[in-house]
Design a protein around this nucleic acid. Structure first.
Length: 262
DNA sequence: ATGGTTGTGTTACAA
């Protein structure tokens, strides 16, 4: 069994104590990190390697940055989402590990909408759709996980009316997320947990965490070959309740080993 | 209560 998780940590350096304790306690096999906010050389690799993880990093100064941690060897690392060579934001890293191809995605937030940032988000989603079609052609198990900055339905936000014009909830964003699913991907958490009102992100302001004013914007999208091996999925709210937390909490799934399904 | 929070890195910007 492979336990694969995604977590927007909002700075790996500020969050290192939270990340180390969670890795030790939860013991995920593969972790997809977003918003590490450091260049590759400044990633605190030693402390994480001491817990038994291999690391692949696609960093950037101050903003964005993604990484993959795995207890298994990491092979065939690719950085950057294809489709726009002029895009310099570090929002995509992909690799093969533990019998599955995994991607860590930090999809643009897109606010304020409408505007340039929203246009960039939508164009990025269109590139992701195109690249996903290419990946699907290989007919292999893969997991596209990350902070999608998309709240798929009104069941995934505490106040749908108040958020309907936000870039996270706008129909242009939701339509493209749905297109990804319609290509044949399975959203791990929702496919196994039908109840509304379950979130992965709570704003720092206004006591959102205490009031459970959250949104579900962190997702694990599985190819058919990975979905066939999906056993369980969940959201671990524990890290969000600790001191100096990220505003996101980890979302995870269990994928059976290939042999077990034969 | 015309406001709230956090992180980066210098005082504005992104989320």
């Amino acid at each position: 069994m492979a336990k694969i998780a995604t977590w927007n940590v909002n700075s790996i350096r500020a969050r290192l104590p939270r990340v180390l304790e969670w890795l030790a306690e939860f013991g995920p096999d593969v972790v997809l990190l977003q918003e590490i906010k450091v260049v590759d050389e400044a990633f605190p690799a030693m402390e994480i390697e001491e817990l038994g993880y291999n690391i692949a990093v696609h960093g950037q100064k101050t903003y964005n940055g993604v990484a993959i941690l795995s207890k298994s060897p990491i092979e065939d690392v690719r950085c950057g989402l294809p489709g726009d060579p002029s895009d310099e934001q570090a929002r995509y890293i992909e690799a093969f590990t533990r019998g599955v191809r995994v991607s860590s995605i930090y999809l643009p937030n897109g606010n304020p909408a409408p505007g340039e940032k929203f246009d960039y988000k939508i164009a990025w989603m269109d590139r992701l759709i195109s690249y996903t079609e290419e990946l699907l052609g290989h007919e292999e198990a893969f997991v596209l996980g990350g902070d999608y900055n998309v709240c798929p339905t009104d069941a995934d936000v505490y106040n749908p009316t108040g958020w309907q014009d936000d870039a996270l909830c706008r129909p242009e964003s939701r339509n493209r997320f749905r297109t990804l699913l319609n290509l044949g991907l399975t959203e791990a958490f929702r496919s196994l947990n039908p109840e509304p009102g379950l979130y992965s992100y709570w704003d720092y302001t206004g006591g959102a965490w205490q009031k459970d004013f959250g949104l579900r914007i962190d997702h694990l999208l599985l190819s058919p070959q990975a979905s066939d091996r999906l056993v369980e999925a969940g959201i671990d709210k524990t890290p969000r309740g600790k001191e100096k937390p990220s505003d996101h909490t980890p979302v995870w799934c269990d994928i059976a080993d290939e042999e077990a399904n034969r």
